[in-house]
């Protein structure tokens, strides 16, 4: 009876760990995709603006990486879940 309870606890713990890993993967993966979508339009506009005026490169680079914050949020959430 004691052995059976131990096994059940171990299974529950392993399952909990797996779910955490899965949640972390979803958090990073979905925010990565969202960042990619957001950067598509900004990136193409940035390339267009830089092609016309090279001086704006620094500014448009900054604007292009702003959506990176979304994936950083996802990463932070994932790390909080895992550790």
């Amino acid at each position: 009876m004691l052995l059976q309870t131990d096994v059940a606890v171990q299974v529950a713990e392993a399952s909990q760990g797996g779910m955490k890993a899965l949640a972390a993967a979803i958090a990073v993966g979905s925010t990565g995709i969202a960042t990619g979508i957001a950067e598509t339009a900004i990136g193409s506009a940035a390339v267009g603006a830089t092609a016309e005026n090279k001086d704006v490169f620094g500014l448009v680079l900054l604007l292009t990486v702003i959506p990176e914050t979304i994936v950083i949020f996802g990463l932070v959430v994932a790390l909080l879940m895992l550790f």
Binding site: A41, S44, A45, V47, G48, E52, N53
Partner: peptide, 17 residues
């Protein structure tokens, strides 16, 4: 596909305008 070519060329045209 998608908005990429439109965004690229429209930005350039807006700058030139």
């Amino acid at each position: 596909g998608g908005p990429v070519p439109y965004v690229y060329v429209c930005t350039r045209m807006r700058y030139r305008k």
